[in-house]
Amino acid sequence: MAGTGTAHLRPEANPLISVENLTVEFPLGGGAKVHAVSGISLDVLDGETLGLVGESGCGKSTTGRAIMQLPAPTSGSVKFKGTDLTELDGEALRRLRPEMQMIFQDPISSLNPRRKIGELVGEPLAIWDRGTKEEQRELVDRVLSSVGLDPEVARTKRAHEFSGGQCQRISIARSLVLDPKVIICDEPVSALDVSVQAQILNLLEDMKAEYQLTLIFIAHDLAVVKNVSDRVAVMYLGKLCEVANPDDLYATPAHPYTEALLTSIPVPDPSVRPEDRDTIRGELPSPIAPPSGCRFRTRCPRAQDRCAHVEPLMRRVGDDHWVACHFPLSPVLEDPAPPA
């Protein structure tokens, strides 16, 4: 699960975002540090949805935030339209911010409870001084209605007057108002009911088409990620395990961890006896002292000696299907990636 290596990147396809060797460490004092993200490489094409999936503590949210430079990564590069964000100074970065927005997990706490929805959604426009007051107001109304809220009613209310699903719609409206290129969605549906979750997922798909967005979708539920993504990256303890398109990832998971994640998902079918399904054992190791070699080896049913010493590199197991494992579940294709 080391997932060092960049074989899965697609520089020839001119990605919109390209992340190389992204590392985020948080110092603990006394020389110890939390290895939150350790050398991840990713790319996202224009108009693509990248799903980032893994357990709590695997560094998926940290990766999302590091791409936004909130905070800037310890090392590595984040290129957006060819510009390396890590090298920009504060003002230059600020100029780029309208193009990249974020939606958070808890819709209620990410909205200021004391302000009216109209002000919350319109604030980015005021900050960037886009158009006249009247134009701003029209735009706010337009995004509110496109996320399925009645602007006449919503504009003058406050966050507590809305349900969780509606608050998430407001967050989405706020992120859309500046017409961004990229939205990073950090667990946008984890706090919602299944029925509301479906509404929000459909809404994100609609908004993606309407506003021509590129999405990075972070979640721990593989079924949700599969539904919205064009490409999925599975993370474990700060490393990448597997990168593939969602249909291949589900049909033929190559990494033992991906397989374990898939078997953990509850199936709404009473004929499947969940106790019979072999799921992952044990707990996530500490990111302060991660295991040597492959980071998943301590919980992996296929682990051998080699896994403790050598960190696996990304290797190709299918068309645009990459895995970082010494003993993957599908055979490794030795030939180099076909030209795009």
Binding site: A198, N202, A223, K226, N227, S229, D247, Y250, P268
Partner: peptide
């Protein structure tokens, strides 16, 4: 029925439109 339909299913191909309860 509506509750069961609104769950994203792993068997469905990605970008399957979810059937929401309005």
């Amino acid at each position: 029925e509506a509750l069961l339909r609104s769950i994203p299913k792993l068997e469905d191909p990605s970008h399957t439109r979810l059937k929401v309860i309005g």
